[in-house]
Write a protein that binds this DNA or RNA. Sequence first.
DNA 1: TTTAACTCTACCCATTTGGGTAGTTTTCTT
DNA 2: AAGAAAACTACCCAAATGGGTAGAGTTAAA
Lengths: 221, 221
Amino acid sequence: MIRVVIVEDNDTIREGLKMLIDGTEGYSCVGSYLKCELMLKSIERLKPDVLLMDIGLPGMNGIEGIKEVKKLLPDLTILVLTIYEENDLIFEALCAGASGYLVKKTPPSKLLEAIREANEGGSPMSSHIARKVIDFFSKKDVKRFPQQTKPTSYEKNENILTPRELEILSGLVEGNSFKAIAESLYISIETVRFHFRNIYKKLHVHSQSEAVAKAIREGIV
Amino acid sequence: MIRVVIVEDNDTIREGLKMLIDGTEGYSCVGSYLKCELMLKSIERLKPDVLLMDIGLPGMNGIEGIKEVKKLLPDLTILVLTIYEENDLIFEALCAGASGYLVKKTPPSKLLEAIREANEGGSPMSSHIARKVIDFFSKKDVKRFPQQTKPTSYEKNENILTPRELEILSGLVEGNSFKAIAESLYISIETVRFHFRNIYKKLHVHSQSEAVAKAIREGIV
DNA sequence: TTTAACTCTACCCATTTGGGTAGTTTTCTT
DNA sequence: AAGAAAACTACCCAAATGGGTAGAGTTAAA
């Protein structure tokens, strides 16, 4: 059961949301308020999983509301509902701690799905809002990412690892789990584990960390 | 009619995508390639609306591919398909010019919807990927921003690691297990684990391998 | 054609790790 | 003296990992 609290000043919308949530299996609206101030007084007691919050509120600004509620419950998942797709508000809300950002015209089914996704660690966003966030990254040329061309180790035993083993070791160095590596290569995790046992023997290591350190430092990958 | 080009090395997936797109009203697959290099030769002639691109490709790196194709068609909408939900890749792709980022397990209906949304100026993202993007805004003090601020290389806050955390991370990079680190520092393994939880949060990683790779590559240790 | 090297899959088991909660103590700053 | 930040410890659980055995099929070279 996902416990939801709503903050929304429009009576019609608020009641509609409440009915939608309470009327759906697995969801429960444990509180609904028309102002942040009221919500803040009860939020700790209610211990909701997700807070649905209108951003264009009278009285306390929605952004302020997010900051305040985050002080009380830092890990609360907050979904922002908005009419405007206004840049500054989006970024301020996200910085303040919102996990997702939806336009109000989002259909009920999508909204429920978004609540569930947010509760499970996702960040549902209306796609036009997501674009604004994305653009923030693409505009600037973030330099990092060394993208090092490896110094062709002309060394001796570079060939001790088979092509497949190199491929698998690379997956690890890129930060993937055995499971992720298995999926990316379309083989079973057992095979991945088998290869790693052999890789460890050849590199004389006994853990992921050692293998990664050695692989990077010796330019194996 | 949305004109789509596909780059995907796995034959089964590529053909499946092509059939899905061609078989759907309003969508047309005008090209499908197993390598970026091949796609780049034809892309200008094909004038697609959306480019669906696998990021884990042989030969030319998917990120490189995005950069190259953006040189040819700066306004092309690019959707990245991936198996990994790997932080660096996500941000590299977005910085390179991708508009959306989907995991491969996205069901066909969602994929078609994503293509349409992207074509209409949105940025469809799998919600767990979106969360990773969002986290860079909320978690750290990404000071004031949008437009004017410098690239804020999105996790330049490696220096937020405390001296003790650096010491412990070094132990890992040197190939030690949690237990070995604990013994060498005369603290309990629980303390080591505690520090690693904090280190992981700060570095935005979730495993030893990721932490080691990041530590070495970014010169943290 | 036999061998060797490589790749793949499946079990088993014990240990380690990732992530969470819930504290106490120390140290430094205000 | 109070508070914040850092360091430390413990306990829980689920998942991932390290290492073992045992076997399959493939390919290329001897």
